[in-house]
Design a binder for these strands. Structure first.
Lengths: 221, 221
DNA sequence: CCCTTACGCTACGAGTCGTAGCGTAACTGG
DNA sequence: CCAGTTACGCTACGACTCGTAGCGTAAGGG
């Protein structure tokens, strides 16, 4: 993609990259997405505004990279000995990250922008979505090693399932935190893990009522 | 909130309201959130730009109302005879709505903006979140009437559960559609409903492996 | 008929985006 | 050491948008 053969001429300053991404995060913390300006980021990073535009085509792409770096750095899968505990802890950590002013807001804004920008969508896919799916894959592997989940025969189906779990977990936490604007606390995480592992009727009915599994899976057309 | 006692002077044109909201939706379809301008909306609606600012303090609040009206108008709960079928159908309808250019993008953008705007957050809560939760409440009621779900003793716990289910469904669909940028199709909806009703291990393992319910619910602190 | 409020219109200040053009700095190959 | 190539800082700029002020006019109510 990017020209790997570039041996001649002055090289790009790697430190400038770090400074710019750091300045972007700092500006996001102080100003938020909507009031963040390229001029401000450049000033904070100690570089010229034109340097920003030489590396990122616009504000959105810059922020995607800044947020991706933040997620990479902050999100790790705990290993607490059970799938349920790992899910709960991951949910809490992800929620804590989303409530930070530079994370959740920016992610939403950038995703909104991406609807009309194929390049940006691709960047989000590769630098955020695909990278964070590793948590689901790793978590499942550990659960399989523990015997909590079966090893799956069909790799395609396994991949689809992992994708869905990723969307369910990330989506639920994002929606609760940012759209509903309600806190993701320990009790919520417990209930959520319960739904994820045992289904909605389990948490709705407690132990007193029957399982009420609501029909069997439709004949799998 | 809004001054209900306003009997004197020229009344506000109700038709202008409709024209503005309609123009906003049309502009969102054509231009998307980021390129929509107040001047453009005013021109489409056939009113002066100042009239927009007399009714909405800024672009975000205007778009919230436009999206809320769209959701109210488009989202209805189907009654297909089983909780599972209703969930699948609702997921598909919601996803179809989100892929429309005036819906998903705008919602994300407005939520992003709301992080730093308490008034906007409140408006989202009342005009979108709380209004759409009716679908979950209604769906549960029907499921209880069918005997698919138990009637709950504790109303507070029941409300919490409903909130969570709302976040899980809406969040998962939004995340898959807008963040992961993958389609929400019938197979995905089937798998999702399976997870929601029976838990993740059910869809991961199929019928061949054991249930593997991964520990019992932690002793409920 | 007077008062009050809404409306259309024009103009404007403030701020941002993203680019062009120039001279200079840094690194490479001969 | 020198020529070629690329990155950088700086200034200036055009285009655009937001949101407001001020004015004259339209539409109702007591």
């Amino acid at each position: 993609m990017s020209p790997p053969a570039r041996r001649t001429g002055r090289p790009r300053s790697a430190e400038a990259d770090r400074a710019i991404l750091g300045a972007t995060r700092a500006a996001l913390v102080e100003l938020g997405w909507s009031k963040l300006t390229m001029g401000d980021v450049a000033a904070r990073a100690g570089v010229a505004k034109t340097t920003l535009y030489r590396r990122w085509t616009n504000k959105s792409e810059l922020v995607v990279d800044a947020v991706a770096a933040l997620l990479d750095e902050q999100l790790e899968l705990p290993d607490l000995g059970s799938l349920r505990a790992d899910v709960e802890e991951t949910v809490l950590r992800f929620a804590a990250l989303l409530t930070r002013p530079e994370a959740g807001t920016s992610l939403m804004a950038v995703v909104a922008e991406a609807t009309r920008d194929e390049a940006l969508r691709e960047r989000i896919r590769t630098t955020i979505v695909n990278r964070q799916k590793r948590l689901v894959l790793l978590g499942r592997e550990r659960a399989q090693a523990r015997g909590e989940l079966p090893r799956e025969a069909d790799p395609a189906a396994a991949a689809r399932t992992a994708d869905m779990i990723f969307d369910v977990i990330a989506g639920a936490v994002m929606h609760r935190t940012l759209v509903s604007a309600d806190p993701v606390d320990a009790p919520w995480a417990r209930d959520f893990a319960e739904v994820l592992l045992c289904g909605f009727p389990a948490v709705a009915g407690g132990d007193e009522a029957g399982p009420a599994t609501a029909q069997k899976p439709a004949g799998s057309g």
